[in-house]
Amino acid sequence: MSDKPVNLDDGGGAAVKRRAVNRGEMTRMQWTLREMKVNKVGYLMVAPFFVLFTIFTIFPVLLSIILSLTVFNLVEFPTFVFLDNYIRLLFDDDIFLKAITNTLVFAAVTGPVSYMLSFMMAWFINELSPKMRAFVTLIFYAPSISGQVYLIWQVLFHSDQYGYANSILLRFNFIQEPILWFQDANYVMNLCIVVALWLSLSTSFLAFIAGLQTVDRTYYEAGAVDGIRNRWQELWYVTLPLMKNQLMFGAVMTITGSFGFGVVVTALAGFPSIDYAAHTIMHHLDDYGGMRFEMGYASAIATLLFFMMMGANLIVKRLLSKVGT
């Protein structure tokens, strides 16, 4: 062996030399620069994705934070108004208050419920035979990937007696007149939540199924030896701690999904929905950004939505990190 730290430089290229840096002889800065130089191909490899990602995701978020402090109608140059848009949103815009309430109700109901459903169902089907499990997974997952199939709920809850729900209720004399369902401010929100739940067994559901599959059987056997007596204890003491990372990923996907639930409402209840009963922040955003072109105001809405989503995610992430500890 030579007395130099590592020397692999016989016949190899730059790639071979890359770990031959002796860190002890350099300052942190020098070492970082050296590492950057040696690994410059890495920057080249991430460049295509991250350039596009910066243009279409990072930059828009920053731009909307800046524009939210201005009045901008797409024609004239934006004029700076500081927090006026936010003040108008929170104190002068009754429809926005309705939108923010609805969005929070949507998120607070569909988020946790769909998260629990995804996990419970994944856990329940985990013990089925592989063929059966694949079949049940398909049944549960299919609605979320099937495009506009959710419009079938409009047929089931049609506003005249041809709708399935109305015809049953009429036949058993629960009601005398057909209920308008999606056109009735009393029902539209609840129905949309039901449809949202129907559509919600998606990415996190698959992540949970996969996570449960990877838990090693020996942990369960060891748990049984240590005195775990039923499946609930097994779930709490063995399975959940082992699945922590999956739970975290599932939570992020579910929360993000539960805040972005606007397209389906538009398709089912129309835009604007009756009395704004199912109006969400996303609708408000579309209204000001896509129709009235009040870009500053729309940016303020988008910025608030951004911080709501991030906030909810970060809080839940912190809570989940306590699972099994």
Binding site: T57, G257, G262, M295, S299, T303
Partner: peptide, 14 residues
Amino acid sequence: MFNATVTTITNFLT
């Protein structure tokens, strides 16, 4: 942790 709704408006400008 956030979805494309947030970026749609400004992306339109881009």
